[in-house]
C-alpha cells in the first residue's frame, strides 16, 4: 500500500515521515471513531477502518543504519491509503 499525502491540515494522525512511502498491511485493527474529526469537537462518525501498515526501515530512510530485516509498524486510517504505485 502507498501512504498518501492528502494535505489535510490540523491534528491528523499520519506523520509526515511515512507519507509517500510504500508498505504492506500487517493487520486490520477494526473500526474507530475518526480522531481527526474528534479533535475538533465532532463525533468522528461513522467509524472508519484502521490498519497496521508495516514498512522496511530501508524504505523509509534511504540512509537507515541497522539490519535489513528492521521494520516499522504504524496505524493508518483508510483515507490515507492507496494501492502501491498510486500516489494520489
Amino acid at each position: 500500500m502507498r501512504i498518501l499525502d492528502i494535505g489535510k491540515p490540523g491534528h491528523v494522525r499520519t506523520p509526515t515521515y511515512v507519507r509517500h512511502k510504500t508498505g504492506t498491511i500487517e493487520r486490520f485493527c477494526g473500526l474507530f471513531e475518526n480522531p481527526e474529526d474528534k479533535a475538533y469537537g465532532r463525533w468522528g462518525l461513522p467509524p472508519i477502518p484502521l490498519y497496521r501498515v508495516q514498512f522496511r526501515q530501508d524504505d523509509i530512510w534511504p540512509d537507515y543504519d541497522g539490519a535489513p530485516g528492521d521494520v516499522l509498524e504504524i496505524e493508518i486510517y483508510d483515507h490515507w491509503l492507496a494501492p502501491a504505485g498510486e500516489d494520489s
Partner: peptide
Amino acid sequence: RKVLREFGVDIPDAVDIAVHDSNADL
C-alpha cells in the same frame, strides 16, 4: 539501534528490530 544502545541495550544485527509507532487508537 542507536537509541537502544544509549539505554544500555545492544541488539545484535542478527535480531531484527520492529518499532511500533503508537500514533492512533491502539
